[in-house]
Amino acid sequence: MKVMTFNIAQGVGMDNVEDLTRVAELIRDSGAEVVALQEVAVDEHGDQGVRLAARLGMEIAEGYKLGRWHCGHGHPSRPYGMAVLSRHPIEAVAHHLLPPSPDDYRELLEARILGIRFLAAHPTAEGEAERAAQLAAIHRITGSAGGPAVLLGDLNDAHAGPPGAAYADPGPTWPADAPAERLDHVYGLGGVAVKEARVMTALASDHLPVVATLAL
């Protein structure tokens, strides 16, 4: 199974142009069956995640929009959060609130697909202590139920995985035009192996999307 994690920066690319079509094309070209999206905004046309799901013919688990942020010069501050898109039926959705951070509240968005728990995360980049507390909560929740699980997202940290999780290094993912930091990851737990992970070269966001191949 192929999965993707992508911080879409509200659809604003490195050229400061907002264009969800580029995001949709990257998702389609990746061949991913499950996609975790971060920094998904509610704009004047509605929820960006819902529009991407409709365009791609995928199901969606909508995350809470708990914070406000703007991406790029001249773009408005908007409610934003996460989403999980799936080419398979989404069997259940859960929202796990994380410890608060200086900028806003964060959640761990869980979607059960094919009997596997897919957990999308985006802990804060503001404050190391707050991020550490959120990552600790993410690790605890991810491992709490046992069974197969996949943790994926912009974790804002180079070493953010749960102890013992399967992992393949995709390389640096940020900033997109000169990647130097490993912020975006895919981890497998409960017998899920990450056979390969790679970045897709694109300037549709300030992050590069990561595509991973899982052995279930």
Rank of each mutant, 00 (worst) to 15 (best):
E126K: 11
E126S: 09
A129E: 15
E130I: 05
A132C: 05
Q134E: 11
L135M: 14
L135C: 09
A136D: 11
A136L: 12
I138D: 01
I138R: 06
H139L: 09
H139I: 09
R140N: 01
R140S: 15
T142K: 00
T142E: 05
G143R: 15
S144K: 08
A145M: 10
A145K: 14
A145N: 07
G147P: 04
G147T: 04
P148W: 14
L151Q: 11
L152I: 08
L152V: 07
G153A: 10
G153F: 02
H159Y: 13
A160I: 08
G161Q: 10
G161K: 12
G161L: 13
P162N: 09
P162R: 10
P163L: 04
G164L: 11
Y167T: 03
A168H: 15
D169V: 00
D169S: 04
G171W: 12
T173V: 09
T173Y: 08
P175A: 07
A176M: 02
D177H: 15
D177A: 10
A178K: 13
A180Q: 15
L183C: 01
D184L: 12
D184C: 08
H185E: 05
H185A: 12
H185L: 11
Y187S: 07
G188L: 12
L189V: 08
G190F: 13
G191R: 04
